[in-house]
Amino acid sequence: MHLTKTIAEKSLIASPERRSEADADWVVVQQVQAGDVAAFDALILKYRERLYAVIYNMIGNREDAADLTQDAFIKTFQSIKRFSGDAAFFTWLYRIGVNAALGHLRKNRLRQFFSLDKVDEDNRPAAEVIAALTDDRGGDRDAYVKELQEKLNEALQKLSIKHRTVVTLFEIDGLSHQEIAEVMNCSVGTVRSRLHYAKQLLQAELQPYLR
């Protein structure tokens, strides 16, 4: 009889992929806790792009997002001995990252500078959308894409921090409602409500680009 429960049994992680991912992470975390510092690099490699994307879409500045992602990993490493496995590692890591982004946003509430990454044209769904929007535009396609990026960022920044975080975690990173609720320390109903409201606002803001 197993006395110790797995991460997936203890926390409410929805999808089976996430469950197996969480269990695998817990094994690596135990290695790090046992003194295998190099094992932490595997966790960095696995989550750096996702965590960066969440922070970047929250604050809209690539340099600050890179710094905050590094800080989040260092903080995670420093306090990894405290991680008891009650929740999934990525939930814990995301919480640290999201809190870092929220702290940054509060600190720099009055002065915000945006610097955006380029759209990855190799990403097929995105390329199709851009093609649909810029098919009849000819030479000024790049300028139009840049303008679209700025409008998207502007619309996101008009949302409140909480609504922006929910949209980012759900739409950009693809977390489930339950996982977002764990990261943001709120109920699933609150997450759904915020998501619905945020989408309504985005719809209104981006109406000229919809058809």
């Binding site: 792009e49 994307a53 970047y56 879409n57 955006l116 990454d117 380029k118 759209v119 990855d120 990403n123 769904p125 995105a126 390329a127 959308v129 851009i130 649909a132 679209l148 990026q149 998207l152 960022n153 996101l156 949209v167 739409e171 950009i172 989408k199 985005l202 719809q203 981006l206 680009y209 919809l210």
Partner: peptide, 12 residues
Amino acid sequence: LDDLLRVKRAER
């Protein structure tokens, strides 16, 4: 709107 958010997701 989901299409536009896909574009946002492709910013890397």
